[in-house]
Amino acid sequence: MADTNSKIPDQPGEKDNGTNRRDFLKETGLSVAALTGAATLLTGSQEAEARVTWAEWFQKSYRLMTNEEQKDAIARLEERHSQEFGKKVTVDGSPAMKDVLFGYALNIKKCIGCRTCVHACVKENNQSRYNPELQWIRVIKMEKGEFLAANMDKGYPKDYGIEVGGNAYENAGVTLEGEHYYQPETVPEKDYFYFPIQCMQCEKPPCVKVCPVRSTYREPDGIVVIDYNWCIGCRMCISACPYWARRSNWGEPNLPAEEMNPKTHYLGNRPRMNGATEKCTFCLQRVRNGRYPACVEACPVGARKFGNLLDPDSEVRKILARKGVFRLKAELNTYPKFFYFID
């Protein structure tokens, strides 16, 4: 009888299917339960951060996203940051404008070393305020060399190779080490000049070439950007940058909610995370909406000029045509779009 009660494989298909179906249903049930559990753990709470974290882990590189995916990513960030900082935060995704290539010029003789630009930049771009205190602009104090207009067309300084250019400052003024933490009562100090350095937005940026995950790239308007979510924090770009313009978030950034600038751009000044690399973006969130970078606006002596290199009537093009201009490390052929000039 026992034999008759047990399943008799008269219809082989039935037996096999019965077992498989049961196993299949069992496994499916377990999988669904496990997935539901995980999803509940991660998204069960109403915390926007949990949902964003979950979604961000699986999001693509910003450059490869469709318009819809970009909008979703931006909406998620807006929700999370608004909750995190307790105010309405907007994340802009404006693309590069057509027929625009941004360039920057700084009058080295006008700069008084007040570092107003540095603080305006920190405020505008939501940089970590302490531990680490990140600054995208560095101003180096240097002993003045002698400016000899007569030497301008007399070739490169000694031991420098082919004589096709000119030199304005005597070597004595530039071979000294810069001072990094000058704190005089007043600026400018006698016999010193000041040298602000920031990202040069190279036309051929070495940092972009070395990025193993292509999280950093040059936009059509010439600005080199970083997809902070895609950055793996390997610091290859920091090593490759000849201008030392990139900063690493060595720790969790400290940005007080009351000091947070809520007008952000996905590729610009939105709050960064531990490990992500960051740098000057010419204030992407401003310049793509027809405004000047914060440092240009803040400079009290008008030493900073900004404009479209494709427009012959722009300030930058006029400076290039009429002033004494030099670039940093021009010999590396990185083609920086940040120029220093002398009246």
């Binding site: 180096i140 490169y156 030199n167 304005a168 201008y243 030099f326």
Partner: peptide, 8 residues
């Protein structure tokens, strides 16, 4: 950066 020569 401070140890460079700047050439017009």
């Amino acid at each position: 950066m401070a140890q460079k020569k700047y050439i017009l």
